[in-house]
Amino acid sequence: MFTNAFLSGLTMGGTYALVAMGLTLQYGVSRIMNLAYGEFVIAACFAALILFTSMGISPLLALLVVAPAGFAVSWLIYRILLTPLVRRAPNRGALEVDSILATFGMLFIVQGIMLALFGGDYSSYSYFNTPVELLGTTIAANRLIVLAVALAVALAAWSFLMHTRSGTAMRAVAVDPVAAGLVAIDVRWAAAAAFALGGAIAATGGVLVSMFLTFNANIGVVFTMKALIVVIMGGVGNIAGALAAGLILGLAESFVATYVDPGLTIAVTYAIFLAVLLLRPNGLFGARAR
């Protein structure tokens, strides 16, 4: 029972971590609090579903199409819809309020489009749902794939941010956009690229999640909230923090469901989150507010 709870918590946590990494980039670097984030995850779920059921393309191959599409769409959204808000906002607080409101409207639009296209019914498909024996318990293979991809994306994103010129530019923008501009970093480009990268990660998360989750057009908000919790727990803009916080959250939920009461898992999520927010408002690993 323990290993079962542990493994399912780990795989669930991997999903949370993966989805949250995109949001932490968008919020940390581009300063856009994207409330429509979960809708993009669900849109990718539907894209994977269509590719799989109508053309028989495996979700892992579909990633090669859906992730770049997520990048392109997010880039356009940032350039066309969000840049005017960034220009107009007199300070960071105003931008935060504006971006929350704008992406809140976007949430309804994307959700409305998905409802019009697919209706409100739950859909799912079966891919790689073979049971695997691991540590004396069984687990679905697709869940292990998700965990592996989450770790791979975290590693890739972390090395990109730490060891490339573009990644360093993004970190500079995250710390101080004005100073970044002074040392000849193209702040607008870095912000747009980080936002688009976040969109690509959201799309990746959506495709992977669709392999084992039953989803409908209305559940995007769940992903947004979980991702937000993970982002704030891990520290805004902190990729490694997001990974750790996601895993912690997944494990906590899984253990509570197994040993306490399945009805309390969501309550526990929020309780942990509120406690972190009050005791360490900069995240579990954050050194200081930015």
Binding site: G105, M106, F108, Q111, G112, I113, A116
Partner: peptide
């Protein structure tokens, strides 16, 4: 929802 979003 769609119209609500656009209005918003």
């Amino acid at each position: 929802l769609l119209i609500l979003g656009i209005v918003f």
